[in-house]
């Protein structure tokens, strides 16, 4: 491979993109995934309530509850609320906003555009400005410095202002702090610490009613 004909080199690699979501994920990670089990009461982030119910949006997948609770590999870790899919009919443009993340959510969001997932083929795109966004996707905990930035981004967005909370920090504050959003205004919660690319893609498709 000495010449610089990148186009041909790309063609030679063949198609790397998986059939997901038409077919099940090829290599779903074990953590994060839906946890199943019973009888554990020492969760450091209270992701298991008094009745023993596991709460996806709080879980940081620290393994303290294992083997009482075990990961299943099921990547469906999202919840849609107060949102009609009719509001979005065509391509879906996301404006990501890092309110106070550790960087892992940022990388997994970027990963949905890797050749293995190629979210563009599913009409999912990123935009550089909230003015062109269908959805504001927030990652990380609430931080003082980003409060105004978050508010301004929301003000700049056209309606309907779809808000997505991605990762345990944005949904519940996780192990780090407090959540940056008004929970009532969140249309989609994507749980995980961080959620896998499979989870992010399937969550957005669930929001759109695909």
């Amino acid at each position: 491979m000495t010449s610089n004909l990148w186009f041909l080199k790309g063609i030679k690699k063949g198609v790397l993109t998986e059939k997901f979501p038409a077919e099940p994920p090829e290599e779903p990670p074990l953590r994060p995934s839906v946890m199943e089990g019973a009888e554990y009461s020492e969760c450091p982030v209270e992701a298991i309530d008094a009745e023993g119910k596991w709460i996806a949006g709080r879980c940081i997948f620290c393994r303290r509850c294992e083997p009482h609770f075990m990961p299943t590999g099921n990547q469906d870790l999202s919840e849609v609320r107060n949102f009609s899919p009719d509001a979005i009919r065509k391509s879906f443009y996301i404006y990501p906003l890092d309110s106070g993340s550790c960087g892992a959510c940022n990388m997994e969001l970027l990963s949905i555009f890797n050749p293995q997932y190629d979210a563009n083929r599913l009409r999912i795109f990123m935009t550089n400005s909230p003015r062109h966004a269908d959805a504001l996707l927030v990652m990380g905990v609430r931080t003082e410095g980003m409060e105004n930035v978050l508010r301004e981004a929301l003000d700049a967005m056209p309606g309907p202002k779809v808000i997505i909370a991605m990762g345990a920090c944005a949904i519940s504050g996780g192990i780090i702090g407090t959540m940056p959003l008004d929970k009532e205004k969140v249309a989609l919660e994507i749980a995980g610490c961080p959620p896998s690319p499979y989870t992010i893609i399937s969550a957005i498709m669930k929001l759109r009613g695909d």
Partner: peptide, 10 residues
């Protein structure tokens, strides 16, 4: 910045 296209973090 702190929040705009092309930046991975804020």
């Amino acid at each position: 910045g702190p929040s705009t296209g092309g930046l991975m973090e804020s």
